[in-house]
Every structure is written in C-alpha cells, then in structure tokens.
Design a protein around this nucleic acid. Structure first.
Length: 313
DNA sequence: CAGGTC
DNA sequence: GCTGG
C-alpha cells in the first residue's frame, strides 16, 4: 500500500483473518435486551436500539434486529471469540432445556422469558460487582460501578459518535485505594469487603483465573473465604464469571419463590434451597435460576419500576 | 425496606 | 448498618 495514501478505500473482499470493526451474527433464542438488563451485568446502557458497554475490556456497541446481532468496536480485531464468549452466543440452549425436569413453574418462566441468556463475564468484574450489590437496586449498583470505572479504570478508545467508556479497574487499582475513597463512590458498608477482595486477588490469595479449572464446590469455597462473600455472592460469581452453570444463587426473590412453590411456605434455609435447586434443575440449574428469578421480579414489579409495592400483609 | 454477610 | 427511594 503506497505510503501517504488516505484510507478512503478498503480491500474489496476482506479475508477471513482481516481485522474488522464490525461483525454480524445470525442468532436464535437470544434476546439482547433481556440478557443485558436482567441484573447479571451492570455496565450496559441502552440508547434506542443500541447497547453500549464494555465486554472483556473492549468497548462495544450492539444492536439486535430479529435474528441478526450486530457488533461494532473502535479498533479492528482479528477475531470475535472474546465477544462470542462474553455473550455466550454458542450456548447450546436446546440441550440445556433438555436437561430440565418437567416442572410447570420453570416451563412457564422459560417460555415467557425466552431468549434470556447467561453471560460469561470477567471474574474480577463479576466478583466486585456482586460484592457491591447487596441491598442495592440495579440502578444504584450501576452508578457505583460507573464511578469506580471513571476513577480507577482507564479510558478506552471511543466508538465513533459515542462517549468515552472506561475499563473496569483491575484488582491492583482498587487495592491501592482507601476505604474512604470507595465509600465516597457509594460503596457504603460494602467498601471494606471490596477492598479486602481486591487485595486478596491482587496478591494471589484468591486465584480467580484458576478457579474455572477447579470443581464447582472448590471454586465456591475459595470465594467464600473472602470476607463479605457468602453463598449468594459466591454463586453469582461461579455462574456469571466462572462458567459453573450448576450454581444456583439464592437471593431473597428466589428464596421466596422456592419456599412458596416447593416447600409450601415452610421456613427452609437458603443453603438448603441452593442444594435443592441444584439437584432439582441439574447441571444447568443456573439457567433455571435466571428464568425463575426474572419471572418473579417482573411479576412483583411489572414495570421494573420505582413503585413502592408495599407488602400485602 | 432493598437481589447479604459476619 | 451505608444510603436512598
């Protein structure tokens, strides 16, 4: 290519390995809106039909149009495996459903929220996010995370026409912060937990990168060694960040649903519910959890709203 | 009182 | 118990 030539012309037929900034997939059983909005990831913004966010450290714009999914990134990439993995485009949905028991509740929830998928997020981002999630609404979690990213993340190359997005701050950056600074970002009583987790990961005391190669119980236990990480947060990280699809996070919503439907409203511990969920729904219990969770949430607050919704008792 | 944890 | 709806 002659030097000094303006980049006004492109190769007529890009070879398979030619780095590109755009990609289109044909996908089935996938609903981007549900998947990015359901509270498993906290950094996606919707603007009309477009979604902006950071996947695996890279800024991305996504648009879904029926069975077409389109992605755009600021700098050409040689392949798109990172995004396919993050979005779990190749998750074998029919095979997953085939493992589910014949359960009327699950069947209905699955039909209603068809297209809701589990993402595969970076483990540290996932751990930090869910450490910040307790007793917070999704919007608040998003806010805190956004502040953390702007303060300790790096500005990323911007997509044309879009504002600059920031990387999720690596453990070392958070580890170097003070508890007061984290509180100032809105972390509240979770600040010391986040700080301790960042230090543990940064110093190799919690080897997040190795956990996917261990068994689910081992990974879960390793996470629960961290202060502030109990069964619920550990399971969220196992499910959304480590790829243990048998994990069955039990939060208050799921606990309510399970006690009502499977235990006649009896008082059962959350660990019992988690075990029950895993054994009833099997190797992909996490998918079942997500359908049941989303179903319950949307039933209780139909417009994902700021409606008060006082208890009916 | 909120998608927990110690 | 942080903090906000």
């Amino acid at each position: 290519m002659p030097a000094g030539t303006c980049a006004e012309s492109r190769p007529p037929l890009p070879l398979p390995d030619t780095p590109t900034t755009r990609k289109v997939w044909r996908i089935h059983d996938y609903r981007l809106d549900l998947t990015l909005q359901c509270g498993q990831a906290f950094r996606w913004q919707r603007h009309g039909p477009r979604w902006w966010g950071v996947a695996d450290g890279k800024p991305v714009e996504l648009v879904q149009n029926g069975t077409l999914l389109q992605a755009r990134v600021p700098e050409p990439v040689p392949d798109w495996a990172w995004l396919e993995n993050y979005l779990q485009l190749h998750a074998p949905l029919p095979a997953i459903w085939a493992t589910f028991p014949d359960d009327p509740h699950l069947h209905r929830a699955r039909a209603q929220w068809h297209g809701l998928r589990l993402l595969r997020q970076p483990a540290w981002e996932c751990l930090a996010s869910f450490l910040l999630s307790s007793c917070k609404r999704i919007e608040q979690i998003q806010q805190v995370i956004e502040r953390l990213c702007r303060r300790w993340g790096d500005p990323l190359p911007a997509l044309e026409g879009l504002p600059t997005l920031y990387s999720f701050p690596p453990p070392g950056r958070i580890a170097a912060a003070t508890e007061a600074e984290l509180r100032a970002c809105g972390a509240g009583f979770r600040a010391p937990y986040l700080l301790a987790a960042a230090r543990a990961v940064d110093q190799g005391r919690c080897p997040l990168d190795e956990l996917p190669r261990r068994t689910y119980p081992e990974a879960r236990a390793a996470l629960m060694n961290l202060p502030g990480v109990g069964p619920k947060i550990a399971d969220c990280v196992c499910l959304f960040g480590l790829g243990f699809l048998e994990a069955f996070p039990v939060d208050t919503w799921i606990a309510r649903v399970m006690r009502e439907r499977y235990f006649r409203g009896r008082r059962v511990s959350e660990e019992t519910l988690a075990e029950f969920g895993r054994s009833r729904f099997g190797p992909y219990a996490g998918y079942a959890q997500q359908y049941l969770f989303h179903d319950r949430r949307m039933t209780d607050r139909p417009r994902e709203a700021h409606l008060h919704n006082p208890p009916s008792g």
